[in-house]
Design a protein around this nucleic acid. Sequence first.
DNA 1: CCATAAACGGGGACAGTCTCCGTATATGCT
DNA 2: AGCATATACGGAGACTGTCCCCGTTTATGG
Lengths: 201, 201
Amino acid sequence: MAITTHDTSALADVSGPRALRADAQRNRQRLIEAAHAAFQQHGADASLDDIARVAGVGSGTLYRHFPTRQALLAAVSEDAIAALLVHGKQLCEAPDAGAAMHEWFSALVVHITTFDGFADELRKGMEDEHSELHGACMAMGASFDILLRRAQEAGAVRSDVEPTDVRRLVHAVAHATEGLPDRAQAADRLLRMLLDGLRSR
Amino acid sequence: MAITTHDTSALADVSGPRALRADAQRNRQRLIEAAHAAFQQHGADASLDDIARVAGVGSGTLYRHFPTRQALLAAVSEDAIAALLVHGKQLCEAPDAGAAMHEWFSALVVHITTFDGFADELRKGMEDEHSELHGACMAMGASFDILLRRAQEAGAVRSDVEPTDVRRLVHAVAHATEGLPDRAQAADRLLRMLLDGLRSR
DNA sequence: CCATAAACGGGGACAGTCTCCGTATATGCT
DNA sequence: AGCATATACGGAGACTGTCCCCGTTTATGG
């Protein structure tokens, strides 16, 4: 049990969890790809064991990388969410606050409607502190509120509505179009109706 | 194989399916009560086998009486739906078409929010021809459309919106409040916001 | 090349749905 | 009342999906 080399075991771990092993990285990527396809095809409640099978790994591997469905969902939509947030940040500078808000809300709805059942998962992620989707939900919520407030201050949206309520309504619009053949158009139409009704008078 | 009495087997069955046997009727009732309690407590996706257990019958009995979850849900909410439809019929005569519509939509939302997950089941029932909930959904839809049209004709609601879209939005409002501690108030507030936005200008 | 930490995988426990079929019983007829 | 039989019951078990455990394999760096 003699320590023959420098003992580094007690040093603070500065670099965070060390990088994944090469095979682990490969498997992780495969899982994300398989999950993306499965969610696209069968909705957000696609069978996880199936995803593992398609990815060519055991189910244990899937659950080690992604302990919950939400974790997998978060990984799958990571890029899209990042893009959405960037888009939001840009729109915060746009001259027409009302139009900027509308544009971003549209993009948000498109994102939520990416696959069936995603709306529900996002709601859970919003409510559950410990969900792996929670962070993303909070970030999107923040972006939402800023764009809404700006629109309100610019007089484009009635000022007597709470952001939380508007969030719920926009989210509901996305949810309401679940399973529709012309989902994109329907969502657009409903969002327009909703926002039209929220204009200042 | 001699036929010794009058052969009635080929006669048209005029009386429909004969009345349930006494024990079957009892079990049916018990199942409905157990289901009601379970749905109230655990939402519309409560375990069916549990419901059977609580009702004191085998799971086979449950599935014979109610082949699907929707069938059970339909039986459980039969009375409430009937009442809602009567209420709707009465409101069709009300002088203020706008107020009548609002009142009924409120009652509808209350009904949809009876238990968690019910909104989703109702949507499925709306879409699926063969759902045991389909009939009720259609009836409620019809009532909805009449009250909306009346409000539109009275100039209380903008005339450029389709009933189908408004249905979806009202339904979405009900769904959006799922799991909220102050569900009733929240639903009321959101519905008010929505309908306020749909007024003619 | 080896020691070992890291990662794998799939068997299996568990929960839920739903069916099948041997058994029990309510009912109507005599 | 007693019987024949349609009617209904019950729960074992097939199946699907989630998720964990732990014996085995493999990448890595010294």
